[in-house]
């Protein structure tokens, strides 16, 4: 990895030190300001609180150390905890659905000529270029009777579907995420399939293997690492669910202010004006996301270099 000729001491070494500082310094400074600093500051905010003074709390206030009080309060909030359940259920459905669809489409694309596969792939990939909030606005219109051709067509067929109902709104959110990211995952998987050596296919053809056998015995096992990694990052993304429910909230009363953990933290910080509790919730979220991703990657033996 490193150069075989490490810089020697003396002027050359000093010059090297300066070069390292110049090349590395700006990134480290910004990283400290935008990653380490915010997390550290949120940790600090999460262990302090505001204490009112005087009989009626009217004689001013002061900041005091409260230990884990904010964390205890966060864990005692039913809505915040239920939010974790909601995003877990969301991930449990959305991630397998999206990856199954992406795998199927990638395998089907492999049977086409490059020209046609390229056209289809471009079509599948297009939604990835639609920002999450705009995708949510768009699907909001497609879910709303009046503007939606879907409800209109279903209505003509005699079906009444409420996409914003208490039982259905989570699946409406799942659909938005699948629509947005499935095509991107098709691209990842196609890249993996292209890396499979051609002679494996030739050997299979000589053995008279069917496309089905080739898919199950050769292709899927060889793209498994990519599937696992994508699944991990999708699960972590699902934990952070925020913009989509926030946008649909206007249309769907079923989406409460604490529907997902991120919505809870946002509500505490801006609606309830309780930044210390919000900080505790943000730290909990960051820790859960970090532990999940690190744990998963350890589990699947993801290499660092």
């Amino acid at each position: 990895m490193a150069t075989k000729h490490p810089p020697r001491g003396g002027p050359a070494g000093r010059r090297n030190g300066a070069a390292i500082a110049v090349l590395l310094g700006p990134f480290l400074a910004l990283f400290a300001l935008t990653f380490v600093g915010p997390i550290g500051y949120a940790m600090y905010q999460s262990v302090i609180g505001v204490e009112r003074m005087g009989a009626l709390g009217l004689e001013g206030s002061r900041t005091v150390f409260v230990g884990l009080d904010n964390y205890i309060e966060a864990f005692n909030q039913l809505g915040f905890i239920e939010g974790f359940g909601t995003v877990a259920l969301f991930a449990l459905v959305q991630v397998p659905l999206m990856l199954a669809l992406a795998t199927l489409l990638a395998l089907l694309l492999e049977t086409l000529s490059d020209r046609w596969a390229g056209l289809f792939r471009a079509g599948f990939f297009l939604p990835y270029g639609v920002p999450g909030v705009i995708a949510s606005l768009l699907w909001g219109f497609l879910y709303t009777p009046g503007t939606s051709p879907i409800t209109e067509l279903l209505g003509r067929a005699g079906l009444q579907v409420d996409f914003f109902g208490y039982d259905t709104v989570l699946w409406s959110l799942v659909n938005i995420a699948v629509w947005q990211f499935a095509g991107y995952n098709v691209l990842v998987l196609v890249a993996q399939l292209k890396a499979i050596p051609r002679d494996l296919y030739e050997a299979a053809a000589i053995d008279g293997a069917s496309l089905w056998t080739i898919a199950w015995r050769i292709q899927i096992p060889l793209i498994r690492p990519a599937l696992v990694l994508t699944a991990v990052f999708s699960i972590i993304g699902a934990m952070q669910l925020f913009s989509e429910p926030l946008v649909l909230q206007l249309l769907a009363p079923a989406i409460t202010d604490d529907y997902t953990p991120n919505l809870s933290a946002y509500k505490e910080a801006f609606t309830n004006n309780n930044p210390n509790l919000a900080a505790a919730q943000a730290v909990i979220l960051a820790v859960v996301a970090g532990v999940l991703s690190f744990g998963f990657l350890r589990l699947v033996g993801w290499r660092r270099t």
């Binding site: 990653f35 915010p38 949120a42 930044p275």
Partner: peptide, 18 residues
């Protein structure tokens, strides 16, 4: 690497506070 694993949305509120 820890930064890679930490999603941006988890940082938005803490960044706002700082």
């Amino acid at each position: 690497l820890a930064g890679v694993l930490l999603p941006g949305t988890a940082l938005a509120l803490p960044s706002f506070m700082l």
